[in-house]
Structures are given as structure tokens and as C-alpha cells.
Design a protein around this nucleic acid. Sequence first.
DNA 1: AAGCGGTGCAACCGCGACGAC
DNA 2: TGTCGTCGCGGTTGCACCGCT
Length: 267
Amino acid sequence: MGRSPCCEKAHTNKGAWTKEEDDRLIAHIRAHGEGCWRSLPKAAGLLRCGKSCRLRWINYLRPDLKRGNFTEEEDELIIKLHSLLGNKWSLIAGRLPGRTDNEIKNYWNTHIRRKLMSRGIDPATHRAINESNNVPNVKTISFSSSSVTTTEETKLNIIECKEEKICTMNVKDQERCPDLNLELRISPPSQSSSAGQLLKRRSLCFTCSLGLMNSKDCCCTYSFSSNCSSSSASSGSNSTNGDIGGGNSDFLGLKGGLLEFRSLEMK
DNA sequence: AAGCGGTGCAACCGCGACGAC
DNA sequence: TGTCGTCGCGGTTGCACCGCT
């Protein structure tokens, strides 16, 4: 079954928006509010598709947008949220007032990835690059807590079945850090990690997994004095937010408690 | 001054989710 | 319950800008 195009492409403009188009869009939304994106272009007298209008409004024209450079605090917050949520840019954006998912996505790809790499952290896994390399052929799925939604559980089950691989959930991890970064590792039994590697991963607290080794917020049992002190660990002194829910801070507004995933859905 | 490569960002595209019928 | 239309998300692309040679 084919999908009908979202708009009549033959009669729509593409590319950069002109000032006049912006003005028309702003005026229309001020008068009628957001929504009905499909019919908006015609109503506003714009030769654009609804999607294009929505994107332009959300990413550029919205009055509550905060333009300008990201602060150091925003940087760290994005990193933490990404380690928790992955590429869920809209959820991350929901925690950064005035920032859009597109903006954060771009910023991640252009700045933060490089920043983490320079710290010796794999931006995809938030683990030390050396450690990531030592665990071949392992799929890591992170989810936030036992309060993970049914949908998320379903997804995990589907993945489990599709991969036809053994899933193991480390219950001890859940007990130690009930609120974050619990991992479902999927790997062939023959490639299960060595005891030493397993110990290292088990003992990696959230703060350290962000590359903030030796931070005051570190609560892991594994010492980084030998392995990680060389990977710009001193940057951990910049950490102000602490670990999620496990420390004294109120990261994500979840003081000391379980992370309620739904609470992140701001939209 | 021109050419070139790297970077940043706005915009597009395809697909999944969801609601209406 | 299934189909269809719309919306929203995440990945990708294209282009302008900038610095270097």
C-alpha cells in the first residue's frame, strides 16, 4: 500500500524560507494558533507543505526559542540525558526550555560528540572508548528503570526475539542503581565478557559512564585511578548535577527516587 | 584573490505512532 | 478490527560561511 505524499510537491517551494514567508506563517499562527499543519499552507497563502511550515515554526520562528550558544550546564545536561535516553532528541529538548530537538541534535553531532571523544568517551555508548572496543558483537540496550513503560518492555521483548540471542539482566545492578542505565546485554553466549570486564562494567556508576571519572558524585566501586585518570577525567570537576536520583542532586526533578520515564515526556 | 576543505545549521525525507472513522 | 490520514521524530542532505593555503 503506497503512502500518499504529504503535499502536492509540484506546486510547493523548497529550500530556504524568505522573510515574507516567515511573516505570513507567523501572522497566521498568531491569528489561528498552531495545528492543522496540512491545511495551514493554503490558509496562510504559503506555497509550502504543512510539514515544512511546522518545522519552520518549531525550529526557528517560535517566540519562546532561546537562540545563541549552549551553556556549559546545558552541555552537561544534554550529555546526561543522552546517556539516559539515547537519540530521543524531542525528549531531551523537553528538558531544555527554549531549545528544539533539531537544534540539540545538530549541537550534539557537531560539538558534543567531539567533546566526548576528546574525553575518551564513545558518544554512542557513553563508555570509555577502550572498553567499548573490548566488547565486540554486543548489543547494549539501556532503559531507565523498573518503571519502564509497557511499550518499552514490548520493544525489548521484540528485540530479544528478533535477535534470538540470550538476554541477561543484571539484577545486582538494579539493586545498586535502581534508577539509571540498567542494561540489557544481548550477545552470543560464547562471547560473554570475561569476569574482569564484567566486573568493570558492573562497577561503573553513571557519573563515570559519562566520562566524569573521579567526580565527587562518583559512587562506583571500580577505581579509575589506573585506567581512566588519563582520559581527561579532571573534567569531572565541572560536574554540578550529580548522578541521576542517586545523589543529593535533583537531576530531572527526581530527587533520590526512581526515574519516571513518562515524566520526561514534556510535549 | 581564488580555491579548497571543514564546519554548522536549516531544511528535507521517510517512517512509525496515533487517532478518527 | 482494519484502514486511512495526519502528526511528529530521527536521520540525512544541502548550502552558506569561515579559515587556511
